[in-house]
């Protein structure tokens, strides 16, 4: 196969972009596995740092996964009916509501966290519980779920489909379960993928809301960068990758499968 100039250029740019992202990643991962970073690879490879990170921060990792799952559950329970309501009643009021729930995207996470602290900071039991962080995550990720489901629902003639189901004897609840949810599935899965990813990686807001006993993965990462040796911080990055990449791949695969079945 002969490469034209344009093709060669495309390939070169692509490879450069990959290298730009990949080389620092590899360096960081290697640093986490090197016995002494300042002496380089020649000092030998070790899993010592990874084990130390696990000892110190395992709780953060589990907390983050747990938060992501709880956040997903909340956005599903709130977001799907909300998107359904907006899709069934299109109009100016719906437009305004949609913009309103999207506000947390435009407002910096720090401001959002500050508002939460001002409002609920004095409620001690709530302030120190993981549900406080959860509230922040749900506020931040909900618009992604709503918009993603709404886009799918708006693209089909939902009202007529529901009329058809009703004429066949389906109650409002059955219509929602049999018609609305299955047909919104591509949007729900895309939304779920976004919500989980954002929740696990969220730093801004979480950093403001966390307590010393409630550190999420990214907060722990910041903590280790600030207070530990470089090798430990790098080992932490490695663990982050090992956890998040298989999760993302699995969700991507599931959503593609589900869309094919549809």
């Amino acid at each position: 196969m002969r490469l034209t100039f344009a093709k060669t250029l495309q390939l070169a740019v692509t490879l450069l972009a990959c290298a730009f992202l990949f080389i620092p990643t590899m360096q960081s991962v290697l640093a986490g596995l090197t016995a002494n970073y300042f002496r380089g690879i020649s000092s030998g490879l070790t899993l010592k740092w990874v084990a130390q990170v696990w000892d110190l921060y395992a709780d953060s990792i589990f907390l983050s996964i747990w938060l992501a799952i709880a956040c997903l559950a909340c956005t599903l329970v709130i977001g799907i009916p909300a998107a359904y309501g907006l899709a069934r009643n299109p109009g100016r009021v719906s437009r305004i509501l949609e913009e309103f729930i999207s506000l947390p995207l435009a407002v910096p996470g720090l401001a959002l966290a500050l508002a939460l602290l001002q409002l609920y900071g004095s409620m001690k039991g709530f302030r120190t519980s993981w549900t406080f962080i959860l509230v922040g995550h749900v506020l931040y990720t909900l618009p992604f779920m709503v918009r993603s489901v709404l886009a799918v629902l708006s693209a089909m003639d939902l009202k007529t489909l529901e009329d058809a189901a009703a004429s066949l004897g389906a109650s409002p609840w059955r219509r929602f379960a049999d018609i609305v949810v299955p047909n919104a599935m591509p949007g729900i899965l895309a939304g779920a993928l976004t919500v989980v990813t954002l929740s696990i990686g969220e730093f801004n807001l979480t950093w403001m809301l966390h307590t010393p006993y409630l550190k999420t993965l990214p907060v722990g990462l910041a903590d280790s960068y600030a207070s530990m040796r470089l090798e430990i911080a790098s080992a932490y990055t490695l663990i982050f990758f090992v956890i998040i990449i298989p999760m993302l791949v699995a969700m991507q695969w599931a959503s593609q499968r589900a869309q094919r079945i549809k």
Partner: peptide, 8 residues
């Protein structure tokens, strides 16, 4: 008119 068959 549009038949409204359930696509799922």
């Amino acid at each position: 008119q549009s038949y409204a068959l359930f696509p799922n």
